[in-house]
């Protein structure tokens, strides 16, 4: 009996050790297979959740036809994004003309993806999105919607991808404050107990005046996020304890709790510096 117990515990220990030390390709294959197999079920669950929300909106008199509403929302998102790009193009064109130079601005190639689910464990700030299997979907692509930057792709499987939101402490974005040519690093700080998304800007030059309401855009430095995507605006500014730099709290432009459709930016080398 004692011998049987010993064999049981030894066997269990070995199984756990094997699972914990799975080689990276095997672990990735296991995750990807599970995700792809469960993607249709997740899509179903997600569509029911959306319908519930749509029904709730209709009851409150906001909605009408939820499907039509969603379709129009997607169209508006695309149009706003295009408009934002045109504004940026106009500004860039002006600057370049001033410098007597010319550089053709490539149009961003956006891939629309629907949001399937959020992180199942609650330890990360991620969402899972569904894509059409396009080879252009790769890790580290910038993700945005009509309001601004959402995050970046962290993992990709055949039909789904995980997006690390800008509110996650592991997500760092090289940003520029308005038109001041001030560069800084934005990092996620999770959520407050009221559910407010917190982000922090660090290493801002202390000699430059930064104030509440200043808008933050991606700087294009760092090789992940293309230049000129709106990230948020400054809420408050403080001087670091060592007195060498300023820090600021940032309110993201995107409502990260209401993500239904997002766009991946298929990057072109010209977009990054």
């Amino acid at each position: 009996m004692k011998r049987k117990g010993l064999i049981f515990w030894l066997g269990l220990g070995v199984i756990l050790l094997i699972i914990l030390n799975l080689p990276s390709p095997a672990s990735r294959a296991l995750k990807n297979t599970t995700r792809d197999v469960l993607a249709p079920l997740q899509e179903l669950a997600s569509s029911y959740a959306q319908r519930l929300r749509g029904a709730g909106n209709a009851i409150r008199g906001w909605g009408g036809l939820p499907e039509k509403n969603q379709e129009l929302q997607q169209e508006v998102m695309l149009l706003r994004q295009k408009l934002s790009e045109l504004d940026e193009l106009r500004e860039q064109n002006y600057l370049l003309r001033q410098q007597l130079g010319f550089q053709k601005r490539q149009e961003r190639n956006l891939i629309a993806c629907s949001v399937l689910a959020r992180d199942i464990s609650g330890w990360w700030q991620t969402v899972r999105i569904q894509h059409d299997g396009s080879p252009m979907v790769q890790p580290n692509l910038a993700v945005l919607n009509d309001q601004g930057l959402v995050g970046k792709v962290s993992e990709v499987s055949g039909r789904t991808a995980d997006v690390l939101l800008i509110s996650d402490p592991a997500c760092r974005v090289a940003v520029q404050i308005g038109d001041k040519s001030v560069f800084a690093i934005l990092s996620g700080q999770g959520l407050s107990w009221r559910g407010r998304v917190l982000c922090k800007l660090t290493f801002i030059n202390k000699n430059i005046k930064v104030q509440r309401g200043d808008e933050i855009y991606t700087s294009g430095l760092g090789g992940v996020f293309p230049k000129g995507i709106k990230v948020g605006s400054i809420e408050s500014v403080t001087l670091d304890a060592n007195g060498l730099h300023q820090s600021a709290e940032v309110e993201p432009a995107v409502d990260l709790s209401q993500l239904d459709v997002v766009f991946l930016v298929a990057q072109k080398p010209e977009d990054l510096r």
Partner: peptide
């Protein structure tokens, strides 16, 4: 119990960014 714990752990780890095995260990 072991069967259920291992399956639950693998599902939780596969559907999120947690490395495979962490939730398995906790659930077991």
């Amino acid at each position: 119990v072991l069967e259920a714990s291992i399956l639950a752990g693998l599902l939780q780890d596969s559907l999120g960014p947690i490395p495979v095995g962490f939730s398995v260990l906790a659930f077991v």
